[in-house]
């Protein structure tokens, strides 16, 4: 249907978006790559020449590298585990007939709209503070000693905060997927005597497979780079320094740009590995 004229017009209309994104991708990427091969300390002498692969080897051999990788994986894994399991449970619960479904949905989704700095600070102070936090009162009420959450149980605390933020996302997507499940199929299975567990395992769960994969991939991409939650709670202390936080510290706090850039390249590679899987799923959907 398209004429030659409208084709060239279409290309012209596409150009600004493509050029901008191309610039946004390539310019910083090339700069990061360039810096990663440099000995570059803006506050201590500036550009001190080429470093070869030294930054890359130094970044991975530094004593904080492996712990930061472990921290990142534990946070991502922990949050995924909690949000997917609870998300499935919540999606099934919210899909049941009930009164006030719309309102419950609104309540469940709410945390997703809270800005990360707010949720981190509210949790840190009003819930996890060992003196005045609500959890401290709760612990005292049951005769237990209040826990210094963010210093003594820092990882579970961060995972809790981040899970609270992302549970609505998982729930919403799984709920959308579950609503497209053919209820006749479930009824037929029920009539044939399949138990609730069996119906869940053989009908509901396989139906949710794709949505679960999408939730995992999208959350992974966002979780790999969580920042504000750590920035305002522990500042990377008490074993909560993730890979992105470590890079942030190298670049902005200690102003070792070469080293931080090498770390950045590692982070980009890591994110790309996850991205490839996500793109495959999204791409498949484009053909349909």
């Amino acid at each position: 249907m398209a004429t030659q004229h409208s084709r060239s017009a279409a290309r012209l209309m596409l150009a600004p978006a493509v050029i901008l994104l191309l610039g946004w991708m390539l310019v910083p990427l090339i700069m990061t790559l360039y810096f990663s091969f440099k000995n570059y300390l803006p506050l201590r002498g500036g550009d001190l020449g080429w470093a070869g692969f030294e930054n890359y080897t130094r970044f991975v051999t530094s004593s904080s590298f492996w712990p930061s990788v472990a921290t990142t994986l534990i946070i991502v894994g922990g949050v995924l585990f909690i949000t997917v399991i609870l998300g499935i449970f919540l999606a099934i619960l919210l899909n049941q007939p009930m009164w006030g479904q719309g309102i419950v949905r609104i309540l469940v989704i709410a945390p997703f709209f809270v800005m990360p700095t707010v949720s981190a600070l509210v949790w840190k102070n009003m819930f996890m503070d060992p003196n005045y936090g609500l959890l401290a009162y709760l612990w005292e009420f049951f005769g237990a000693t209040p826990v210094e959450w963010l210093s003594k149980a820092s990882m579970p605390s961060i995972i809790t905060i981040v899970s609270w933020q992302w549970l609505p996302f998982a729930t919403l997507i799984l709920l959308t997927a579950i609503q497209s499940l053919d209820s006749e199929q479930l009824e037929a299975a029920e009539m044939d005597g399949a138990s609730a567990t069996k119906r869940f395992a053989y009908i509901t769960l396989p139906h949710l497979g794709r949505a679960i994969t999408v939730v995992i991939l999208i959350q992974t991409i966002f979780l790999l780079s969580i920042f504000a939650e750590i920035f305002v709670t522990t500042g990377g202390a008490f074993g909560t320094k993730t890979l992105s936080y470590l890079i942030f510290q190298r670049v902005l706090e200690s102003q070792n740009v070469g080293l931080g850039s090498a770390g950045g390249v590692y982070a980009i590679i890591l994110a790309n590995i996850v991205a490839v899987f996500l793109m495959r799923i999204v791409g498949k959907n484009l053909d349909a």
Partner: peptide, 21 residues
């Protein structure tokens, strides 16, 4: 798909270049 892939570039990886620019 390519546009989507730019979204996956980790911000921290390009923090300094953007800062400098």
């Amino acid at each position: 798909m390519w546009m989507l892939s730019t979204k996956m570039l980790p911000a921290v990886g390009v923090l300094y270049p953007i800062y400098l620019l």
